[in-house]
């Protein structure tokens, strides 16, 4: 199979969720290090149902999954690139374009909403100067919404990369962002 090209349709997702389209703005960024992508593929391709583990490894190690990477994965697994694209864009933890150095995900589900997640989100927007789905001009933070992250015992909660912060009040935001 030759190098297939992958036409990516951008624009607002049907659900209007800004988080899923957050990464769309910089898709034409420099090609990812394909040697690393190939290394990841060869490390994981012999597992049962390897597609998700491969995409997860690319996401984790490189921060996003480029069009070139998707094509490479498709060829290695004998799939059509559109299938790989379909899987990649289905899951909220996969990004199809580079994001900020740190991704802030604010839980928008009811158990966080009830004790005041809305005010926390406002404080984040104000501190960062961006709306949901956007990245700060310095490329440091991307702000997203997420569904329940399962730390409702300390709601309202946010995740910055893998780190959870809970029992938040708007006044806590400054000190948390200062850690990054």
């Amino acid at each position: 199979m030759g190098k297939a090209s992958l036409e990516v349709t951008r624009g607002a997702a049907a659900c209007g969720c800004a988080a899923r389209t957050a990464a769309g703005n910089a898709r034409e960024a420099s090609p990812q290090d394909m040697a690393r992508v190939r290394e990841i593929i060869s490390r994981l391709r012999d597992r049962t149902a390897p597609l998700l583990p491969i995409l997860q490894a690319i996401q984790k190690e490189m921060g996003w999954i480029s069009e070139e990477a998707m094509v490479e994965v498709a060829e290695a697994l004998g799939m059509h690139p559109s299938q790989v694209y379909g899987v990649t864009t289905f899951y909220t933890l996969f990004a199809t374009g580079p994001k900020g150095k740190h991704v802030i995900r604010v839980c928008a589900s009811a158990p966080c909403h009830v004790p005041g997640a809305g005010a926390v989100l406002e404080a984040l927007k104000k501190a960062l100067g961006v709306e949901v789905g956007e990245t700060t001009p310095d490329g440091k933070f991307t702000l997203e919404l997420t569904s329940c992250i399962g730390v409702c015992g300390v709601a309202p909660a946010i995740m910055i990369d893998d780190q959870v912060y809970g029992n938040l009040k708007p006044a806590d935001i400054g000190a948390i962002l200062a850690r990054y």
Partner: peptide
């Protein structure tokens, strides 16, 4: 486990 308000399995 993704049901909002549930974290027992975790």
């Amino acid at each position: 486990e993704g049901e909002p308000g549930t974290f027992k399995d975790r």
